[in-house]
Amino acid sequence: MNPSDWLHVTRGEAPLVVSIPHAGTIIPSDIEARLVSPWLARKDADWWLEQLYAFADALDATVIRTGVSRTVIDVNRDPSGVSLYPGQATTSLCPVDTFDGEPLYLDGQEPSAAEIARRRITFFDPYHAGLEAELDRLVALHGKVVLYDAHSIRSRAPRLFDGELPQFNIGTNGGAACDPGLPLRVETACDATGLPRVTDGRFKGGWITRRHGRPDQGVHAVQMELACRGYIDEPAVLTSDNWPTPYSAARAAPLQAALGDVLKACIAFANST
């Protein structure tokens, strides 16, 4: 596949890049034929984030997203294979199971090391090259830029975390990915909603935040992991008949307004001296 088939970049001039790495659903036919279920392979997508963050264009932000499913390759994982969360359950560069531990591939059909290397060249490397190019462009223009890595996940995923996830989960790699002023502004915008928020909790930031967050070079990165309940209904038990639930603009409007304040706070930080 050519990058033009799946790599989507909308360029803006504001000092903000919004990365959406997990909302894709494209699975090449040769890979899909080896899967247990196409629905299962798309179950853990960050559903409807393209619609939820559609307002970013009006803020003149740059948006980069991949249309490829994270089952094909997860562009937010360390390409060396090292776990981002040692000692905790997580998925790999080319996942072989779901968040709930269900196998994705038919017996004996998991990707080999050689296939994983090909997928990295085809999908992983172009995504990060595109992200790097946009960050470099905007740093040259502004001197200081925010990289906002947008994610969402079910409120409950017992294999990954205990209990119910807060609505807003801010990740800064323990403060290494940005100057302290950025999470403070993002936290203020989140806290104004009255909804639960945590910073550097279960989700401290993935490979995108850790790789591209270079505050000493003008790139300040923050990850936002949303609990899905903020914008869509979450069935107690997920099946192919009820998941994903449809996107409703009216249902998502309150959270979308809050996220608008979050992105404006990011731009304000980038414009601050």
Rank of each mutant, 00 (worst) to 15 (best):
L184S: 13
E50Q: 11
G218R: 03
T172H: 13
D57G: 14
S19P: 08
G101S: 04
D136L: 08
A150H: 05
G206F: 01
H22E: 06
H212A: 00
L135E: 13
I170L: 07
P235I: 00
H151L: 02
W207S: 01
D149F: 03
P126V: 03
G87Q: 10
R210C: 08
Y85V: 01
A221S: 00
F168Y: 00
E50D: 15
F124C: 01
G174N: 11
R159T: 06
E13R: 15
N242D: 11
A113C: 05
P111R: 08
P21R: 12
S80K: 08
G201N: 09
P28I: 15
A257V: 12
S155N: 02
S112K: 01
T66K: 02
R159C: 06
M224Q: 10
S37N: 10
A227E: 02
S112F: 08
S19Q: 07
F203M: 14
Y85T: 04
V262P: 04
R137G: 01
G67S: 13
P21V: 15
G205D: 03
N242M: 01
L226F: 12
R70P: 04
L147G: 01
V9M: 13
G143I: 05
S69P: 07
T245C: 04
I170T: 12
P28C: 00
G201D: 11
I153V: 00
F269I: 00
L40Y: 05
V222K: 06
G67D: 15
R11Q: 05
R202W: 14
N271K: 14
T98K: 03
T245S: 11
G175I: 04
R65N: 02
W47H: 09
T193F: 07
C94D: 03
H220G: 06
G230Q: 02
S19N: 12
D162E: 15
I267D: 00
C266H: 06
D57W: 12
G108V: 10
D97W: 11
Q51T: 12
I153L: 02
A265T: 12
V186N: 10
P3I: 08
W207A: 15
V222C: 03
R11C: 14
R118Y: 09
V18T: 13
A89M: 08
A23S: 15
Q256L: 05
D136R: 00
V262D: 03
Q109F: 12
G201L: 05
R229Y: 11
V36T: 04
C228Q: 14
D261I: 07
H151A: 10
D78W: 07
A14I: 03
L104Y: 05
N271M: 03
I267W: 13
R185G: 00
A41E: 13
W6A: 00
A150D: 02
A117K: 01
G213E: 04
V139L: 09
T90N: 14
A257H: 09
H22K: 08
I26N: 09
